[in-house]
Simulated scan of single mutants.
Amino acid sequence: MAMQLNGKYAVGILLTFILLAAVMLYIFPVLYMMTGIKQMTAFSFSLSRIALWFVLLVIFLYTHCVEKGHFLLKKEKNYTLAFFIKTIVGLYFICIMGGAFLGAAIQVFTEEKMSSKLFEISSLLKNNYFLIIFTCFTAGAVEELLMRGYIQPRIEKMYNSPLSGILVSAILFGILHSTYGTIGQVIIPFFIGVVFAIFYKLYSNIKILMICHFMIDFISLMMMNMLDIKHLSVL
Rank of each mutant, 00 (worst) to 15 (best):
K113T: 15
T179F: 05
F43N: 03
P153Y: 13
N160L: 04
E120K: 10
F84I: 00
M114F: 15
Q107E: 13
S204I: 14
K157I: 10
L145A: 11
L146Y: 05
L5T: 13
F218Y: 02
I211L: 03
A82S: 03
T179D: 11
H70C: 15
I187S: 01
A82T: 02
V186T: 10
I216R: 06
L118Y: 02
H177G: 10
G165I: 04
I166R: 11
G193T: 03
E67F: 10
V195R: 07
Q4V: 11
P162E: 15
A42C: 12
S44T: 01
M222C: 03
G140D: 04
P162W: 15
I151G: 04
F130Y: 15
E144K: 11
T135C: 07
E143A: 02
S122T: 05
L146G: 11
L20H: 11
I171S: 04
H64V: 07
I229C: 09
E112H: 01
R148E: 10
L145R: 08
K77A: 00
F17I: 13
D228C: 05
K230E: 07
N78R: 02
M3R: 15
S169M: 14
S44C: 03
G98A: 05
M34Y: 06
M24L: 12
H64D: 08
N78Q: 04
K77G: 05
K86P: 11
T110C: 10
A170C: 09
I85G: 09
Y129K: 00
N225M: 00
P29T: 02
V186H: 04
G7W: 10
N128T: 05
Y79Q: 14
S44N: 02
